[in-house]
Design a protein around this nucleic acid. Sequence first.
DNA 1: TATTGACCTTGACGCAGCGTAAAGGTTTAT
DNA 2: ATAAACCTTTACGCTGCGTCAAGGTCAATA
Lengths: 254, 254
Amino acid sequence: MEYTVQKLGQMAGISTRTLRYYDEIGILKPARINSSGYRIYSQEEVERLQQILFYRELGVSLDDIRDILNASSFDGLKALNEHREKLLNKRRQLDLLIINVERTIAEKEGGINMTDSEKFAGFKRKMIDDNEKKYGKEIREKYGAEKVNQSNQALEGMTQQQYAEWERLGVEIMVTLKEAFATNNPGGELAQKTADLHRQWLSFTWDRYSKEAHAGLAQMYVDDERFTAYYDQAQPGAAEFLRDAILIYTGQIQ
Amino acid sequence: MEYTVQKLGQMAGISTRTLRYYDEIGILKPARINSSGYRIYSQEEVERLQQILFYRELGVSLDDIRDILNASSFDGLKALNEHREKLLNKRRQLDLLIINVERTIAEKEGGINMTDSEKFAGFKRKMIDDNEKKYGKEIREKYGAEKVNQSNQALEGMTQQQYAEWERLGVEIMVTLKEAFATNNPGGELAQKTADLHRQWLSFTWDRYSKEAHAGLAQMYVDDERFTAYYDQAQPGAAEFLRDAILIYTGQIQ
DNA sequence: TATTGACCTTGACGCAGCGTAAAGGTTTAT
DNA sequence: ATAAACCTTTACGCTGCGTCAAGGTCAATA
């Protein structure tokens, strides 16, 4: 079976311009040129094109694709698995972006609330009060009143931007936690990244970070069912998983 | 507090070139120009820059960012929603790709079965026979024996790769059709994408594409209940919807 | 005071990966 | 014969800057 530019383009879902460009940069040359100067592709080129498009989807540059395809001795399966990993990463990124955009939309739709600094301050205060009601007493008992006050003060002192960033981090933790949980390996890369995000998140309200306090908080996430419930939103068992990840992260266990 | 390009750039973690570019395209103009022609930024611009970088992180184009920041919050909302749509599209694409990669991996891992060309050939032949039994007579009457033979020959000539791709496209059409149907707008973006996928799918077996033949086939999908039943798998009424989308796509109706 | 060296300016070219004409030739169906 | 669908090359345009080039300005130092 032989194909002209358009046929091949239609099959592959790309423009003829793209095919001409690929010819031009030498990444996909037609099998032959017919007497009228038309580009004629055959089976071999179809398969090469499929490979090209496959890598292109992954965001690999055409230059790199050429290298990959020319370095003929590549183990197909291994390469495929690596690509799958990359794709999953990309999707994680995308999910984060979508969540952020949706949150921004929600904020805007919420009206002037979020951009009105007074109302914003009010919103923060409400959150602090809620926190106080929910966890205040026990946390004060466990961590001392000073630390809690510090946290609340930090919240109050945040600009809207900082607050948004803080909240965004919280969402990112949930998303990453969910993915990390699926790996079932609290010492793994994703889980450790989650723990690191969690540290970042804490740093917004903690005056000073210490591994011990971090580990202690993680344990509390498991001991206190309200915290457990919060993190188990990601997946049942996620709070425990997060604790383990943090214990490893802080070097409490190896 | 006032800042020159370099100071502001350092604060925000961007290059001075970027700041000059933002000035050039009018997305972030300095508060004033001093007597030597230096750009001087003040607090207001710092905040605007933070906003810009925030949206940029989300992957919004600078043009759209300008709209978001300049226009009333309503227009900004619209832009954000559009951006969200784009992201969702991207994710749909990604998901399809991941499925494909996983299928490819599974096939490769599944061993020789799927790559056994004889079995594959037998499978294709069976499909052609089935097609023949199901639709052969009437299609021959309507479209002429030649076209049908051509189609069958094309099928026979496909490599396993092509066939897999062809099948994949078929699945993608069903998925997209279902989504498009929900919009209830055959002229909409998703429906038109479905029609385009359908064109791609046809191109695998059609020697030559023409809008008229495409439109004719679409009409047949509605006229022939066996085809209708097939596409109505997606949703009852989907065949009709697909016909309308294709009629618009081919310019038969506007 | 003259000279560095770190700033600042505008202008212009380059990059990837094509889209989109423009201006023309070819093939096929009717 | 004509139209419609194809094909060709050439060439400019788009984003979001990076990267010279060719200068002017400012503060510190020799």
